[in-house]
């Protein structure tokens, strides 16, 4: 599913332009070294780690989009870094668990 289609279902706030990349699954974690080692390719990362280094890790791990939960604010330098790496950044007031359920349902990975 394209990021754009995914967010038509989720309706989260899109903080960057929307790259045309695919999302096939998701990974939920707030420990970036864990994300680096275990996140699958073409995934969306569900996290509260709102800073530039999240983008660096995402780009290395093959993550195409990052959802910032609990209304965590993206610092100034995070979004340009994301644009450069063509990674979408979205924001939601939901917590990581509820976001995971919403994404799982949207991707039809769970009921």
């Amino acid at each position: 599913m394209k990021i754009k289609e995914l967010n038509e279902i989720l309706n989260f706030e899109l903080l960057t332009t929307c790259p045309d990349s695919e999302i096939v699954t998701a990974y939920t974690s707030d420990l970036l070294s864990d994300v680096m080692g275990n996140a699958p390719d073409d995934s969306v990362l569900i996290t509260i780690q709102a800073h530039k280094n999240t983008i660096a890790v995402a780009s290395l791990a093959g993550i195409n989009a990052v959802i910032l939960c609990n209304n965590r604010k993206a610092p100034e330098d995070m979004l340009p870094a994301a644009e450069k790496e063509e990674i979408a950044v979205l924001s939601t007031g939901l917590n990581q668990f509820d976001t995971s359920i919403a994404v799982g349902r949207a991707l039809e990975l769970c009921k």
């Binding site: 420990l31 970036l32 070294s33 864990d34 994300v35 680096m36 080692g37 280094n53 660096a56 890790v57 290395l60």
Partner: peptide, 9 residues
């Protein structure tokens, strides 16, 4: 930093 990020920026 390495344990949290997985690398040293």
């Amino acid at each position: 930093i390495p344990s949290q990020l997985g690398f040293l920026p």
